[in-house]
Design a protein around this nucleic acid. Structure first.
Length: 676
DNA sequence: TACGCGATAAACACTA
DNA sequence: GTAGTGTTTATCGCGT
């Protein structure tokens, strides 16, 4: 990749001639400009000035990084197609500034966007440290020269002013030592800063780092390895000099044969983006096993590269596999980008769900304090109330996005116009129950929440039998053909616009199984009617089984039903499984950050539950708050014919179909399991 | 633990 | 032969 010469690349030195990067060049120029301006570190240079200079350099580096990032994102990607060996750094440049990460590499890293800001910060800090070391080296050299000169003068003059000169020398030496001490303090501060960020660790027995160690804090070989790790291209070589396929930072081979082994180690636990370690495992101080255990791409003998899952018996074979299969090429780069997209999606989803949860909690807090006679609060998170309440109670507005469909308005367990905390389970996947006592039968619910069911891929909380019956009863002649029943399902429920084979089979199965459905032959063909007597005769259930829908089977239900059968979904599911997140909505699944909020919400509800149970309900002490709530509300609610129905489970997804066309036949449409 | 229920899957037969 | 329809069986998870 050719570096476009920025306005700051005024110095016409070899760095430019050799394609040296702008940032690197900038550093060089800055140093040289400083020197030419008399700011060269000298005996007179104070530690504060050096620190200031260091900060200035760091700022310039950061600024340069930003400029590069903007340029990269500004559509200059065609430059990447240049024939120049993009990752090759000229030898001269590498030799000139062997310890400083080249801007080309930095730009590559930025373009790949695979480094977290923390890592970038560390890189910048390392740049600072290295620059400081350069300054110190010059400073030290000058000191030596001057001392030597003074010694020569002493020996040459040697006479009457001997004592005076000796005194001067002593004074200067003292000043020099003080300067050195200050320099070392500065360096230690710098190192401590790095340590604070958890990205540097010192070997035991080395409380302080010699300058030489700092100088090698980021040797080219390490940078090369860093690059390889960042790009997924590893080298297993011990010589480390034979592989220049990806990034050649230096012609010097310092990895294993360097006389001064760096005593700096990158903390393997400092990884924030899955990169287990920024440094190569071949460092003798990092054991092979330790690195293997911390490698994010290797676990349980399987390569965890997205879409790979190749079995690697041991770590060396894994490395070999990694080098062979996931070297730096277009495919790996593309996969890396895909992974970045996945992460971005997850982050986006997380932020959305955080907002949603905030709004929900704010809303519930408001609603739960409202008088029970409130005529409105039928909905828990209906769009109108939600947006209003959210805007009032939360600084974050909650736009009505497709991922936040309207929620059923129907009251669940209590009276139709009273919302209580027992109905909070509406938020989750708990089955809602319908009571004729409150004149809210299935038909009423469907009518009230028609838009919700049409747009949100929420599995209706009714059994297939109830839905079929409802479809038939809604028809003018109280009879429907099978196909008309299908159409009613897809028309009324977004949920039934996918997995047609499954639910259609279930519909047919129910029609045949239940005696309440009577097949009637007519001139058109067969139509299905409902035998209400038979329907009412169906055995009522004492408990309609909410709890069963608050269990892992529901997770399976959700996982198989909603639309995120994608890497994102997989990531969500994996995250959910790993974190054992209680299920509230699929959209919020797997967000560890939400667990605390959810937990808080549960705790808040728990108090209400306790109060409710103390009023006669016998909730089991071992139950979770949610279960207890269900239990309470079952106790409070009489049975009704509709209640006999087992739920289909309530599933909310972040995916819905707002563009649903009622006239369109969704039957047997291929289920789009992939999400762009 | 047995049972019933609902959901799901699958096999099979029949018909247009 | 294919697709749609209808029936039946089996299995699973859950609650009682």
């Amino acid at each position: 990749m050719m570096q476009e010469s920025g306005p700051e690349t005024k110095c016409n030195d070899s760095a430019v001639q050799n394609g040296g990067s702008t940032g690197n060049h900038l550093l060089e120029c800055s140093l040289r400009e400083s020197r030419s301006n008399g700011e060269t570190p000298s005996l007179e240079a104070s530690a504060a000035e050096l620190a200031h200079f260091q900060q200035h350099q760091a700022l310039q580096v950061a600024r340069q990084l930003l400029i590069h990032q903007q340029q990269v994102s500004g559509g200059k990607t065609q430059k990447r197609n240049d024939k120049q060996p993009s990752l090759q750094v000229p030898v001269s440049v590498a030799m000139m500034t062997p310890q400083v990460i080249t801007p080309q590499q930095m730009q590559q890293i930025l373009q790949q966007q695979v480094l977290t800001p923390q890592q970038l910060q560390v890189l910048i800090q390392q740049q600072q440290a290295l620059m400081l070391h350069q300054q110190l080296q010059e400073f030290y050299k000058k000191q030596q020269d001057q001392l030597q000169l003074q010694l020569i003068q002493q020996h040459a003059g040697k006479q009457p002013k001997e004592q005076q000169q000796q005194q001067q020398v002593t004074t200067q030496q003292l000043a020099f030592q003080q300067q050195l001490l200050q320099m070392q303090q500065l360096q230690q501060q710098n190192l401590m800063t790095l340590q604070r960020h958890g990205l540097l660790s010192l070997q035991p027995g080395q409380p302080s780092l010699p300058l030489q160690s700092l100088a090698q804090g980021m040797i080219p070989a390490e940078l090369q390895q860093l690059w390889k790790e960042v790009t997924g291209s590893h080298t297993v070589d011990d010589g480390a000099c034979n592989n220049h396929s990806s990034l050649d930072l230096s012609t010097t081979c310092v990895s294993s044969s360097a006389p001064h082994k760096p005593s700096l180690l990158l903390n393997p636990h400092a990884s924030t983006n899955g990169q287990a370690s920024l440094l190569t495992p071949k460092r003798e101080s990092v054991s092979h096993e330790e690195y293997m255990h911390s490698h994010s791409l290797y676990g349980h003998g399987v390569c965890k590269w997205p879409g790979c899952e190749a079995v690697c018996d041991d770590y060396s074979s894994f490395l070999k596999h990694l080098n062979n299969e996931h070297a730096l090429d277009d495919r790996s780069t593309a996969q890396c980008r895909v992974q970045m997209q996945v992460v971005q999606q997850l982050e986006l989803q997380l932020s959305k769900d955080k907002e949603r949860l905030q709004a929900m909690m704010s809303h519930l807090h408001v609603k739960s304090t409202e008088p029970k006679a409130s005529p409105q609060p039928l909905n828990l998170v209906s769009s109108a109330t939600l947006s209003k309440t959210a805007s009032e109670s939360s600084p974050q507005s909650l736009p009505h996005t497709p991922t936040t469909p309207t929620t059923p308005l129907t009251p669940i367990t209590q009276g139709p116009s009273v919302i209580t905390t027992t109905s909070i389970h509406n938020v989750g996947p708990i089955r809602r129950r319908y009571s004729d006592k409150y004149n809210v039968p299935i038909s009423s619910d469907i009518a009230q929440n028609q838009e919700f069911y049409k747009n949100a891929e929420v599995r209706p909380p009714f059994t297939y039998a109830s839905l079929i019956r409802q479809a038939i009863l809604e028809s003018p002649e109280k009879q429907l053909t099978l196909n008309e029943i299908y159409n009613w399902f897809t028309r009324m429920f977004a949920y039934f616009r996918r997995n047609a084979a499954t639910w259609k089979n279930a519909v047919r199965h129910n029609l045949s199984l239940h005696k309440c459905f009577v097949r009637v032959e007519n001139v058109k063909g067969a139509v299905w009617t409902v035998d209400e007597i038979e329907f009412q005769k169906r055995r009522p259930q004492k408990i309609s089984g909410e709890d069963r829908y608050c269990n892992p089977s529901l997770i399976k239900n959700i996982q198989t039903s909603h639309a995120y059968c994608t890497p994102l979904n997989a990531a969500l599911q994996a995250s959910m499984a790993e974190n054992s997140i209680p299920l509230y909505t699929t959209a919020s699944m797997g967000n560890p950050a939400l667990t605390s909020l959810a937990s808080a919400m549960r705790e808040e509800l728990n108090g209400v539950i306790d109060h409710a149970t103390s009023n006669g309900s016998d909730s089991s002490p071992g139950r979770s708050p949610m279960q207890a709530m269900h239990h309470v509300h079952v106790k409070e609610e009489p049975m009704d014919p509709d209640d006999n129905e087992g739920p289909l489970s309530l599933v909310t997804t972040a995916n819905q179909s707002p563009d649903f066309d009622p006239d369109r036949d969704y039957e047997d449409e291929p289920v789009n399991e992939d999400m762009d």
